[in-house]
Simulated assay, not measured.
Amino acid sequence: MGICTALLIFLAFGVIMIGFGSEKKTYAAFPDEVYYMDYNVYNLSFSEKNELIKWGFEIFRNTSLHIGPKQKDSTQIFAGNNLACASCHLNGGTKPYGAPLIGVIKRFPQYRGREDKIGTIEERINGCMERSMNGRMMPEDNAEMKALVAYMDWLGRAAPEDGKIEGQGFMKVKIPNRSVNLEHGQLIFEKVCVECHGMDGQGQIVEGEGLYLYPPLWGNDSYNNGAGMTRVITAAEFIKSNMPYGTTYDQPLLTDEEAYDVAGYINQKFRPTKPNREVDFPDLVKKPVSTPYGPYVDSFTEEQHQLGPFQPIMDYYLENHKINKSK
């Protein structure tokens, strides 16, 4: 099981499986056969390797207990908030279009524009530590880092050699050719999101455990403003196929426009500031159009990069830099 989120990082930690397809198509079949594997770590037999995998899963779903604010050894605190890896990577990292981690190890080393270099999986995890977890880098030889990598490696045991699977990342949405409507976004939030995250957006805590059942969407204990989820397009893609809780890619509740507006509404709220964001994307031409902070290589305002319309920015990069940007 685990804790699942509902919206943006907006999730719930959990391991609820998506329904398999039937002739009536109540739910479509999984988009890739790898999703039919057994990903329950508790079915693993006892061995040193399997115990490391189980430990990685425990860190993955209860991050704050082991490498976050609830860790009593201050030298082992790397996550700065009480979110978990499971907050973005749903169902233990096995949900289609819920940022699944199946095969991710095989996709590294990997080039990333934010650093403008080839990076390792450990560097990618540390990117999450510094941004989504609003914390600091974890040494690559740290026992918890090795456990997380072991768990991810085990998830990808049936993935193809290149690690690419259908349903990786988030589901694409058609971005409206207009600015975010914040008033409409607030209406969607109050109609759909408050049941889990509350009117104040601060989520729900499991009584007696101090862990989030549904995490905060903004405020001091949420992801910082350097995280990928602060990009409206990225957040809208996540929301469309995963939120509210229980939504699946083949049975979305929100329209593209609703996901777009509520993503913009949430990301206009206060959250921690990521230090040194200005050094992100050394090659500014590669910066996603909905990155909410400068500098930019174009003349569009920071407000337009945050709230759109994004089509004019995309057109600019296509015309002037021959780059067809989608986020």
Rank of each mutant, 00 (worst) to 15 (best):
F20T: 14
Y249T: 09
L253V: 10
D256M: 01
A86Q: 11
S47K: 03
L187C: 03
L284T: 08
M129S: 12
V192S: 14
K146V: 07
D38Y: 05
I9Y: 01
L307V: 11
D32L: 10
Y265L: 05
P282D: 11
F46V: 15
V194D: 08
L213A: 07
E123C: 10
K25C: 11
T5V: 11
A227Y: 00
G210I: 09
K54G: 04
M243Y: 05
Q202R: 09
N40L: 08
M145Q: 01
Q186E: 15
V232N: 02
G246D: 12
P96G: 05
P244V: 02
Q202V: 09
S74M: 13
M171A: 06
V173M: 10
Q251D: 08
T301H: 07
V289G: 04
Q110G: 07
N142F: 01
S74W: 09
S87T: 12
P244H: 01
P275M: 05
L83F: 05
E319D: 14
K269W: 06
V232P: 00
F270P: 12
D32A: 05
M152E: 12
Y245T: 09
N43S: 04
P295L: 12
T234L: 13
I53V: 13
P96D: 10
V192A: 13
P312C: 02
G198A: 05
K174A: 15
G113Y: 15
M171G: 01
K325E: 07
A84D: 14
K269I: 10
P292I: 11
V149A: 02
E130N: 07
G21Y: 10
I175S: 03
S222L: 02
F30P: 11
I323N: 04
D32T: 12
Y245I: 07
T26S: 13
N320S: 11
D250T: 04
Y35M: 08
E123L: 12
G113K: 14
W218S: 07
P176Q: 04
A29F: 15
E302Y: 00
G198I: 03
G98F: 00
K106N: 14
N220V: 15
A79Y: 00
P109T: 08
P288Y: 04
I118H: 01
M171N: 02
E23D: 13
G156E: 03
W218L: 11
T248H: 06
E237G: 09
L44F: 06
N50A: 03
I102R: 00
I67R: 00
H184F: 07
N320A: 08
V15H: 04
W55L: 15
S299P: 15
E319M: 12
Q76D: 10
E190D: 14
D298L: 07
D283E: 15
K240N: 15
T291C: 11
R277W: 12
C4N: 13
A159D: 05
G156T: 01
Y214F: 08
N43H: 10
F30R: 13
K146P: 10
Q186F: 09
P96A: 03
N50G: 06
S47A: 06
A147Y: 00
G210M: 08
F300L: 03
Q202A: 06
I205M: 02
C196P: 06
L307S: 04
